[in-house]
Each structure stands twice: as structure tokens, then as C-alpha cells.
């Protein structure tokens, strides 16, 4: 059993070790006829916070959706917590401990705040309790009886994140969580991410806002045209800032 956990051979002959939460190897993704991801390789160690950077349409959101099996079809190898997931049904993937927060937040209008919070089924033990969550996001407690979509943008974002913390997921895929939010809210979100990382969560952050992501991440993956074209370690960030600016076109 230990040997299986320690080194799983993926179809591409790349070994994945047990300290890796996510390992993508040669992943292609398609929506109908359109080929969106072209051989993405991505490894995230347990407890790491990494970002996917890139221009709009580079394939960052699609990478998260591909991990969740929410695209038309996919190929390659996607190992999550030591398990190959390429052939898995979409609703089995969260049960490996993956929590997904979509770009459009996906707050349900027909549910109130607390119903939204309680909606995602528990995927493993050790998730935050409702009290913990209300402690971390006091605004949500005050507005727990409001219709989910009546919250402000920032509160909806808090709700979308809080919702997956309850489930016990220890791998979080967060898509553009700072989009359109005030700096003070982003500051609060950054503090939440630091807390979650200190609790040992693995976090993949798709971000447009580099200034938000830079101080948080261990590593940055730069995407373009559905490929990962560069990897920048946090320590090299200052030295490579010009490269990065050129890649992102800022």
C-alpha cells in the first residue's frame, strides 16, 4: 500500500510522489471542436500556494475546470492526492478533497446565505464548522438569512470561499477571487488565504491581480495559448520581474 501511495506511475511515465497534491501531465482539454489546453504539466506539492498567471484566454480557468472534469473532454493524466482522476465522473472528484470556487462565484439565488453555506456535501472530515466560518467571516453571520445573491460582491466572494471550507476539502482551486473587489476586501481575502495556508491547505489561485498574488504564492505558473510557458519561484520573483511583465504584457 505504501509503495502505491509513494510512487504512482502515470500513463506518461512520470512518477508522482505522495507529497504532491496535484500532478497534471500532458493534459489536453477540449470544448467540442476547440482544443483549449495543449499538454499542460503542473505539479503542486501539499501545502503549497501556487498561482496561474496569464492573459485572458490563456487557459487558466480552463485548467481548473479540467481538473474538476467540467470541460467537454480531456486527455493526459491528472493525479489528485495520489489517485488518477482522468476517468472519474465529475461528482467523484470533489470527494478526493478538492474544493472549487468558480470565477462567477456561483452563489445560488434560490438559497439564503446559510443554505448556500451548507449546500456542498462534506467530502472528508476536518472541515471548518459553521461557527468557525462565521468567526472568519462575521459579515456572513449577520446576513445568514439574506438571499445569497443580495450580498455585496465582496460578501458573495467570501461566501463562495467559505462554502468549500466547510466540506473538509484540503485542495482549493480558486478562480479570480479578487476580480472587481475593493482593495480593502482583497486585503481581507489575502489574510484568509494566509490563514488557510498555515493550516496546511493546498491552494491553486488563478489571478489577474499580480500584486495580490505575489506576496502569497510559493510559485507562479505563467500560461499562454493553453500551455505553461514559464515557472517562477517566489524567491526569483524580484530578479525576474521584467520577464514576467513582458509575459503578462503589463
Amino acid at each position: 500500500m505504501t509503495s502505491v501511495m509513494n510512487a504512482t506511475r502515470s500513463p506518461h511515465g512520470i512518477s508522482t510522489s505522495s507529497d504532491e497534491a496535484i500532478c497534471l501531465a500532458g493534459v489536453n482539454a477540449f470544448y467540442g471542436e476547440s482544443h483549449i489546453l495543449h499538454g499542460v504539466d503542473l505539479r503542486v506539492k501539499r501545502g503549497e500556494l501556487v498561482t496561474l498567471l496569464g492573459r485572458n484566454g490563456a487557459g487558466r480557468s480552463t485548467t481548473l475546470k479540467t481538473i474538476m472534469n467540467m470541460v467537454g473532454s480531456r486527455s493526459g493524466s491528472i493525479v489528485i492526492n495520489g489517485q488518477e482522476t482522468l476517468g472519474m465522473k465529475p461528482h467523484h472528484i470533489p470527494r478526493l478533497g478538492v474544493g472549487y470556487c468558480p470565477e462567477e462565484r456561483g452563489i445560488f439565488a434560490s438559497l439564503d446565505v446559510e443554505e448556500n453555506l451548507l449546500l456542498p456535501p462534506t467530502v472528508r472530515s476536518g472541515g471548518m464548522s459553521l461557527d468557525d466560518i462565521y468567526g472568519m467571516f462575521p459579515n456572513l453571520y449577520e446576513r445568514r438569512r439574506s438571499q445569497g445573491t443580495r450580498l455585496s460582491g465582496g460578501e458573495q466572494q467570501m461566501l463562495a470561499m467559505a462554502r468549500i471550507l466547510r466540506t473538509g476539502a484540503d485542495i482549493l482551486l480558486l478562480d479570480e477571487i479578487t476580480e472587481g473587489l475593493a482593495p480593502v476586501i482583497n486585503q481581507a481575502l489575502a489574510e484568509v488565504l494566509v490563514t488557510l495556508k498555515s493550516r496546511g491547505m493546498t491552494i491553486v489561485l488563478v489571478e489577474q491581480n499580480f500584486r495580490f498574488a505575489a506576496p502569497l504564492a510559493d510559485r507562479h505558473f505563467v500560461m499562454e495559448h493553453g500551455r505553461i510557458i514559464d515557472t517562477i519561484e517566489a524567491a526569483d520573483l524580484d530578479a525576474r520581474r521584467d520577464d514576467l511583465n513582458a509575459l503578462l504584457g503589463v
Binding site: M68, M70, P90, H91, H92, I93, P94, R95, Y100, P102, G106, F108, A109, S110, L111, E115, L118, L119, P120, P121, V123, I164, T167
Partner: peptide
Amino acid sequence: TRLGAYLRAGTENPALMQAFGVNV
């Protein structure tokens, strides 16, 4: 009820419900 909440949420966004682990 909780089952009803699944139903209402599934009516709104089945793909996301699936991504939460619900067998839609």
C-alpha cells in the same frame, strides 16, 4: 429541506453542484 436545497441549486447550476460532489 436539504434535499430541496439540492434540487433548487441543481435547477440553477447543475455543473457547479456536480463540482461540489453532488450526483446530479
